[in-house]
Nucleic acid binder design. Structure first.
Length: 289
DNA sequence: AACATCCTCAACCGCTTTGTG
DNA sequence: GCACAAAGCGGTTGAGGATGT
């Protein structure tokens, strides 16, 4: 026996809300509150709607201080940073953006931001110019290549952090996209569960699921480990590969517990991937080189 | 102008989590 | 600790509008 339905489906209205229904719901909640019971609310408010539907309509549309319209660049960056770190936990992301709903952010991510970060559009339409500029600005490294022990001014560090967040979000999006299409896995450079990077950024522990290796059509390599001001984020880069576990293990001299260790340059050489960028961690900030 | 295709976003569905007795 | 109900959440759908051919 399945779960009992939350309401009598035969006697509830579905589909778009009319202005009259909106008014009824808004006025009822403003005068009486939700009473902590969404199931009973539609009946009390004189609405032929499911309680879940009322809740959604209120939270996503009628609630005061809801922000509609374009997302700012700052909001984009916050979404990217959080997506890179926690994935599609939309409610948590929404909690960091006052006035935005989880549904809004989810829609925005799936329809626009992801494509913007991945740098492509499946559309036959020409990209809108300001969107193109935003994308270029967003993904452009905002600083010169740095080496050795040189330091960067804090404003650059802040920019670097955002660039790293964008790259991390793009990597997460690319991985999601790729996995959706192929159910293949990625070689991970210091992923969430094992980020072990040497002080100069040249060496990482890598872990990878050898049960499900995929072949990639476009080789992308991201490697990033960065700090924010509160805690270190062990965000790993992912390199889609066409090598089997045994081959990788042999090339890198790993062990048998699903984890292999090696210097990044060896990994690049072994897997034939391209080094498109890496982040060095020094003190509280990271560099891009 | 007509049709096809794509994009957006509100709303729904069903699973998971939380609260209560 | 268990069972049940309600709320919360994330994935998916589909109507309607925009754009391309």
């Amino acid at each position: 026996m399945g779960r009992a339905p939350c309401c009598d489906k035969a006697n509830v209205k579905k589909g778009p809300w009319s202005p009259e229904e909106d008014t009824k719901l808004k006025e009822f909640i403003e005068n009486h509150g939700t009473g902590g019971n969404w199931i009973a609310l539609p009946h009390k408010a004189g609405l032929k709607r499911c309680g879940k539907s009322c809740r959604l309509r209120w939270l996503n549309y009628l609630r005061p201080n809801i922000k509609h319209g374009e997302f700012s660049a700052e909001e984009d960056r916050i979404i990217c940073t959080l997506f890179a770190n926690i994935g599609s936990r939309w409610s948590i992301i929404a909690a960091q953006l006052p006035g935005r709903t989880d549904n809004d952010i989810k829609n925005y991510w799936n329809t626009k931001l992801k494509k913007k970060l991945l740098g492509f559009t499946s559309s036959k339409r020409k990209p809108i110019q300001h969107q193109q500029q935003q994308q270029e600005q967003f993904l452009q490294p905002s600083f010169e290549i740095s080496t050795g022990n040189s330091t960067l001014p804090s404003s650059s560090c802040q920019n670097n952090y955002y660039t790293a967040a964008a790259a991390a979000a793009a990597a997460a999006a690319a991985k999601q996209e790729y996995q959706m299409k192929s159910s293949g896995n990625f070689l991970m450079f210091g992923g969430e569960t094992s980020c072990s990077t040497s002080s100069d950024g040249s060496c990482s522990q890598i872990s990878y699921d050898y049960n499900n290796i995929g072949v990639l059509h476009e080789q992308i390599a991201y490697e990033h480990c960065f700090y924010d001001h509160k805690f270190m984020l062990g965000m790993g880069g992912e390199v889609p590969i066409d090598y089997g576990y045994e081959e990788i293990k042999e090339l890198l001299g790993g062990n048998n517990n699903n984890t292999v260790t090696g210097c990044n340059d060896n990994i690049y050489a072994a897997t034939g991937t391209t080094r498109v960028g890496s982040f060095k961690v020094q003190e509280k900030f990271m560099y891009y080189h």
